[in-house]
Write a protein that binds this DNA or RNA. Structure first.
Lengths: 337, 337
DNA sequence: CGAAATTGCTTAACCGTTTAATCTCGCTGT
DNA sequence: ACAGCGAGATTAAACGGTTAAGCAATTTCG
């Protein structure tokens, strides 16, 4: 019924093996025959069956998977894009699963990767159980994690250089004359958030500055807004606020403005992650870009390397971060007498 | 080497057919044997090979594809989410391809769908050639389009109700007392943009209003900003601006503000699409939500229906739109003497 | 009680490719 | 003229499942 390699073989007057050799460019086919086959393929509009291919050749055709927690989170699409592009370049078929923060769907996602006989899986969510990780390891499926520790066999770790990002922000503010620098935190459970907070504390200490007030946040607009309101009423008031992410920063700005503070004239505000929000909010936000597309690309590279080498030792990769200047940060206000 | 159904069969002391029947819940297996098999599967940690499954049973295991032009465009992630979720519920495996507006990659995407023997493909990009569409049709692969016409066999169309969305915006502004309402356009080639412009003209006419100035835009921040500047300098100045999308609206607001206009006291501004931008920009934007997740869900449903029925007649589906009130629109300023 | 129907399981062919092993020639070199 | 050799093609056995057909044991029923 469906068009198979046999139909092509018949049409070209050769065997299926020859057609296969042409399709896979093994170079074992003579010029004349090659032309015959190619033209038959064209004429019939033949497209090989991916499943049959995968099944018959465990090595030539491979797939790489990526599991994200929430495709709606603007962090991920760029990562996915980088991942897919690189995977494609390396000759892999890429499949994506979204867990939606749901353990059941996370389990399904991992199963899907196994079912599809993925060579490697980039796990871009922290909500994954050890059981699943072990199951992947047992099948010798390469894995990359995001900001997690376990660099064991078949596992590499992608570390985002939050410290450097935070350093750049703090130094930027310091250079602008800010000394009282507040911090609006995110969720305590999240490694990435904790890392940023620690980097902040670290950097402040190194600069010999007193730790500014550390306010709670929720990674959302609302949390930022109440933090902004709180900051506006402090005495002495911090002259700068470092928010855990852009969305929080937008909230902080709104809160400050509602309380009558000008940004950045009275208070400077910075974000993190360089979302579109940072660029288009009003004022635009000074933030940190953590090369997400690069992250995706490196994940693919890492998986490729792991699954390719005979001795699959995990590595640690660093993803850089870069300060992006916006309108939300400016010189510290001159001290009142 | 890899764990196969034969290993499970051996471990459970039954035939592979029985294992298969248990796995597929055909109900042809006795209770005792069933338990035996299930426990063997658990014990060994067996996961069936998706490729072999697909190959062996062309009907039980099916996949649905979705092709988007740019996963970074915040419009798509939600659509994808709705699509994947529904596809999963209907028992399909969903695969995604991103074309990045590149015809070559669009071609690859379509080929991938054919290789994977997708039952249906939701095409969420307008950059697709007729050749490709015909190739899909020839293979009897169901297809859904976005705002395109050709409702033929194996093809359904998803129509976003832009008219209703625009109507709601115009009426909302009208009710607020606005009479001079400008429009900032997008790209001329895009159906969706044209539809919005036409709906605007239509609605203005029905309300007996003079068509406000129609300014060029580029779907981007910059275009919006220069439009905003332009509007600020007009006499008489429009009291409201309808932007083709949220990003443009943000630009318009920035432009207006830079020119000394207050939003919404002097000029009201509205967007379209309800992106995060609308919610978090300052002021937040009055916009139109076009239920994207629903769009994805309906796409999956449509494909399911097409590929399932014996007479695959294309249908037309409507996706609703809903006005979302923000801070960027308010009562028209009182007319100066 | 024996034939017929039902239940539960196995056997083996098949899905559409790839690929190792094998075969067929036309050439080379002696 | 002939053994030896490649290049180029074919044959057939996988790959890991599904499923129609067949068979054995048990149940149903006249």
């Amino acid at each position: 019924m469906t068009l198979t390699i046999r139909d092509v073989a018949k049409a070209a007057g050769v065997s299926t093996a020859t057609v296969s050799n042409v399709l896979n460019k093994t170079g074992k086919v003579g010029r004349k025959t090659h032309r015959l086959v190619v033209s038959a393929v064209k004429r019939l509009g033949y497209v090989p069956d991916a499943h049959a291919r995968h099944l018959a050749s465990r090595d030539r055709h491979r797939t790489l998977g990526i599991i994200v927690s929430d495709i709606e989170n603007p962090f991920f699409p760029e990562v996915i894009k980088g991942f897919e592009l690189r995977a494609q370049q390396l000759g892999y078929d890429a499949i994506l699963s979204d867990t939606n923060y749901d353990p059941r769907r996370t389990r399904r996602a991992a199963e899907r990767m196994m079912e599809h006989k993925a060579r490697g899986v980039a796990i871009m969510t922290s909500e994954i159980s050890l059981r699943l990780i072990h199951e992947l390891a047992r099948r010798k499926i390469a894995v990359t994690f995001l900001d997690l520790a376990p660099t064991r066999a078949y596992m590499s770790n992608l570390r985002i250089d939050y410290a450097s990002g935070v350093d750049q922000i703090v130094k930027h503010l310091y250079d602008l004359g800010h000394r009282r620098i507040a911090f609006v935190a995110g969720r305590e459970g999240l490694k990435s958030n904790v890392a940023r907070l620690e980097a902040y504390e670290d950097c402040m200490r190194r600069l010999g500055l007193e730790l500014g007030p550390i306010l709670p946040g929720d990674l959302r607009f609302e949390g930022g807004m109440s933090a902004g309101l709180a900051v506006a009423q402090m005495t002495p008031r911090p002259t700068a606020v470092i928010a855990i992410n852009d969305l929080t920063a937008v909230g902080v700005i709104k809160g400050l403005m509602n309380a009558g503070c000008r940004v950045p004239q009275d208070v400077s505000v910075t974000g993190f992650d360089k979302t579109r929000l940072a660029e288009y909010s009003n004022p635009s936000i000074t933030t940190v870009d953590i090369h997400r597309e690069t992250l995706g690309r490196i994940a693919a590279d890492a998986l490729h390397e792991l699954s390719d080498s005979a001795t699959p030792n995990g590595k640690e990769y660093q993803i850089g971060a870069e300060l992006i200047l916006g309108e939300s940060s400016g010189p510290a206000p001159v001290v009142e007498p």
